[in-house]
């Protein structure tokens, strides 16, 4: 008998609570701004906090109220921004996506080591012992602290240094935070030409410890036709706004510290029907790769062309394709 009353009481209270809550949820229903719901649905829902708001819901509310730009989510992509922009009735002003990049090429075969480290496989632990086992005190230690920090599986350790998959990177910045060597930086997504070195020593001091370090020789600076690369504090720095990715510096760098895939180098092609022979492109070409007389169709010397795109941007008739 007592068991029946116990079950009855507990079940009864449960049912009453349930029914009351169901009624209350109808009765006290508050209309949430449809915009917030729509924006929330257009966000990726990773709740990573990369935007600085408490999760995707917080950001959705902020965007809907106009307190955050439509592209405030670092994880979303162009498509997502456009969706949110459409909901908000504005056009998306999208800056280029930034991705994290490990500024070190000093893999095990190219960089020397100070000592054999046999402690925890953790960069912070290794860095606590005389600044890590790499001879270069600015280099990637390769114990994978960033790999563990990355929530998106974008980082792998290859041959003793970390490599970031730029397609998987969401620019949440967690790896940058945890790296004890501060060797990870944000670079624009489409940027291939990057000085992958942080060592601020000069010449021989770098060469002795790493075969691919920047030795501050300034050859890149002298060869850049766009004033986009400068050696400051014994390290070459690229101004990504000015860089046209012509890869001249990549070619000229004696230690190959500047990355860039020469196979991917673009070539200018003149569309003959559109060219009016104004010679503007020939004048602007930094390598004199374009020839042609006034009012005649011009030609590009593919061997000289460095694919900088200056001609294409200057052509008044849009007659040059990259």
């Amino acid at each position: 008998m007592i068991i029946i009353s116990a079950v009855g009481v507990l079940g009864g209270i449960g049912i009453i609570c349930g029914v009351l809550l169901a009624i209350a949820s109808k009765l006290f229903h508050v209309d949430v701004d449809q915009k917030i719901i729509d924006v929330r649905n257009a966000l990726p829902g990773a709740n990573c906090g990369g935007c600085g708001f408490p999760g995707c819901d917080g950001l959705a509310a902020a965007i809907a109220e106009g307190n955050a730009p439509v592209n405030a989510c670092p994880v979303s992509n162009q498509e997502g921004y456009e969706k949110i922009a459409a909901i908000m009735g504005v056009t998306a002003q999208v800056g280029e996506k930034q991705v994290a990049k490990v500024m070190c090429k000093g893999c095990d075969s190219l960089a020397t080591k100070k000592y054999d480290y046999e402690g925890f496989t953790d960069c912070k632990a290794a860095a606590a012992v005389a600044g890590g086992n790499k001879s270069c005190d600015k280099g990637c230690l390769g114990f994978g602290t960033c790999v563990n920090a990355c929530a998106f599986d974008a980082i792998i350790i290859e041959d003793g240094i970390a490599k970031i998959d730029r397609d998987k990177c969401t620019s949440c910045g967690k790896c940058i935070e945890v790296c004890p060597k501060a060797v990870i930086e944000f670079v624009p997504y489409s940027q291939d030409v990057i000085v992958e070195c942080h060592n601020k020593d000069f010449g021989k001091a770098v060469k002795e410890i790493c075969k691919v370090g920047c030795i501050a020789c300034k050859i890149c600076e002298k060869n850049c036709a766009f004033d986009a690369i400068h050696v400051e504090n014994n390290i070459a720095k690229i101004d990504y706004d000015k860089c046209t990715q012509c890869m001249v510096c990549t070619e000229k760098c004696p230690t190959r510290a500047i990355s860039g895939d020469l196979k991917k180098r673009k070539k200018a092609v003149i569309i003959e029907d559109k060219c009016i022979g104004c010679t503007i492109c020939a004048k602007k070409c930094p390598t004199n790769a374009i020839e042609g007389e006034l009012k005649k169709v011009h030609k590009v010397d593919a061997a000289k062309c460095i694919g900088c795109g200056v001609c294409a941007s200057k052509c008044p008739k849009k007659a040059i394709e990259m």
Binding site: C17, G18, L20, L21, A24, S25, L27, F28, H29, V30
Partner: peptide
Amino acid sequence: ALVQFVEMFLKK
């Protein structure tokens, strides 16, 4: 149940 209810009530 009470906390849930109070939350809904306050929201409204």
